[in-house]
Design a protein around this nucleic acid. Structure first.
Lengths: 122, 122
DNA sequence: TCTAAACATAACTATATTATTATATAACTA
DNA sequence: TAGTTATATAATAATATAGTTATGTTTAGA
């Protein structure tokens, strides 16, 4: 009768289910960005962006810190970590049959880890 | 002024942002299941489950086929494929810094592929 | 101390989502 | 063909989400 409260995983997936918020995350892969700079490419009011940012923060996908008069947004290093086990579970079950999602995951895994020598970088 | 229509990725993430639907997907990892059997563990009406199933189907996460009087639900082999490039992009950017999401992805990748010999299976 | 820039919050509106009950449809089965 | 089982659809209500404008707050600097 009552809808159960959203859990962490709910919040992460819900946060990702919006093009604007995904675009914000993508932007943050380039480094920390202030709220006004995040607003710039969007045809949307600043309060609307502020709310999107809050959704991302509540989901644990980003963090914020002051820098003078700016509030810089930063990707949370392990923000997506909470959904990985779940995705793995489903992906594994696919894989036990006939699946090519593994290929994509291998691609993710082939890039070197930070402590590896960056010999392949020009 | 008008909210842009949801794209495929929106639909997939939105579909995953619900515990009931994730539970349904998890259930389907065990093999195809009919709608009434899917309903069984939930304290929710059958029409509600039917709608959840429809959301999963619209997102491309499951398919259905008739089997006599039953409509069997089945995981779509590449259902999650559409979000993988996006997740990879974000994960990669984490990884360029200091990240352990790679570890999880490696875990996903260590299980053998279907065409590999199952020598490690007891 | 006054002002401006960079944000956050509030109040409100429109639309989407989720659940319920009631009812329709489709395929077996007697 | 009538009945039953499995499932879908419709109508409706409650709540959540996303956007808007207006306004508040914090910090830096003249």
């Amino acid at each position: 009768m009552f809808r159960s409260a959203p859990d962490n995983i709910d919040r992460i997936f819900a946060a990702l289910a919006d093009q604007t918020r995904r675009a914000i995350l993508a932007r943050l892969t380039g480094g920390d960005v202030g709220v006004m700079d995040i607003c710039e490419p969007f045809e949307m009011s600043q309060p609307a962006i502020s709310r999107h940012i809050k959704v991302l923060e509540t989901a644990g996908l980003i963090t914020r810190h002051r820098q003078g008069t700016h509030r810089m947004c930063r990707l949370s290093p392990d923000g997506l970590g909470a959904i990985e086990p779940w995705l793995s579970m489903i992906a594994n079950s696919y894989a036990t049959k006939y699946n090519r999602l593994d290929a994509v995951l291998e691609t993710m895994q082939t890039k070197e880890t930070p402590d590896a020598p960056s010999s392949t970088c020009p």
